[in-house]
Amino acid sequence: MDGDGEDSANCDGLHKHPRSPSNSEGNSHKQMCDSEDSPSSQQQCLPQKIQWSKGQVAARDYKVAVQQLIKFSISSFCARLASEYAYPDRMTQVLWAKEAWKERCASYEIEMAFNSEIIQIITCRMSHLTSQVKGKVHSLIENIYGFEHGSRESVKSRNRRLACQLKNKFGLCYRNLGDKKTKVPRSRLFHMKLNQKAENLLWYSNKKDEGVMFEKLFTLFPIPALALVYAAAEYCVDEWVDGKRTDISFSCGEYKEAYDKHLANLNKFHLRTKDHGILNGILKEINDNGRIHAKVDLADVRDADCLSDDEIHNVIRKYQQGSGVNETGDEDENEGSQSEDNRCEDE
């Protein structure tokens, strides 16, 4: 659907209050799944363009109100990718993009149609998300796992052994890799430093990040999002298998294969340990610390950090004995007169 229709007053700005979807919206949902253009409706205004970019379509081609809806829809779409599955097929991508658009419109009480270009803008964020995760994780791998740069053979040999350990049977998912020579086993599964550092960069960088805005999806940090981080980490470890870091070409297919493997492993672990709440505790901790990092929730202040009850009662008693007079002001005046006298004596 093109953006040459008449614009209504409700489409000029996003200032409406959220509302719940009506029955008519539920009936139209099935129709929208059949095409990347929304069905024509007299109640819907059409997304209007203000310019035409050459090449790939961009959100900036549309009016400001449409740009905001696209932005919000992209956030919702990416949050769903992180919380459900990062590599849905094309039909599922389109369905999720349409649902994200309708959700944003409903929250602002706007009846605005979408078109195939808008759906394309939203669904393109899938590849952007995976690339972003890889980029953020890439900056952490070297320090967290201890890879070193150097031309000495001893350094290269150590890097090769480390990369082999990390890739062997989900080794990168352990905090401590152990030592075969001394028969020390690996320990602290899924408690790596990578967990919190990567999640803070990707989903909790500020109060407007997806981990905060979509609280219902991130109350327990999503397992699929954790699998995406582990898949990116494995991809980055592959760059060190020859002893020194070498850029390797990014393959979406190989990335997806690693993602599916880590997702299945996490789901299996969660199923077997669900009664003990092991993984749930890890996921809750990631979200709690992430929200603190985003400065959303203030850290709990213990009662011991405050004045004691006796100290407060003493202040109340002295206040009552002084008939409610604030003695601070008198002291300040005296201090001021004394300092004035001192200055005169100095002169």
Rank of each mutant, 00 (worst) to 15 (best):
E331G: 08
K102T: 10
L189P: 00
F114Q: 05
F269H: 10
R245T: 06
S107Q: 07
C45I: 09
L217N: 03
N342Q: 14
A304N: 06
L283Y: 05
G55F: 01
I119N: 05
E117N: 01
A106H: 02
N342T: 11
H29L: 14
A86C: 09
R104D: 04
D242W: 05
K16P: 02
A294H: 00
D37Q: 01
D303T: 09
H17V: 12
D341V: 13
I74V: 15
A233W: 04
C164L: 15
S8L: 12
V229E: 03
F77L: 13
S38C: 04
E199F: 15
D288P: 03
L46K: 14
K284R: 00
Y87C: 04
K244N: 05
D297G: 02
P222M: 10
A299D: 09
Y85D: 14
S139L: 09
E340H: 11
E333A: 14
E234S: 03
S28E: 14
K256T: 04
F114N: 03
S107V: 00
L283Q: 00
K167S: 15
E117L: 00
K295A: 12
Q196M: 07
H15A: 09
C236M: 07
A59G: 06
V296R: 01
Q67T: 05
F214E: 11
Y204V: 07
Q196T: 12
K54H: 11
G55N: 06
L201M: 05
E6F: 04
S20R: 11
D310V: 08
Q321I: 10
D247P: 04
E257F: 08
S249E: 15
Q165C: 15
M192H: 08
H270G: 01
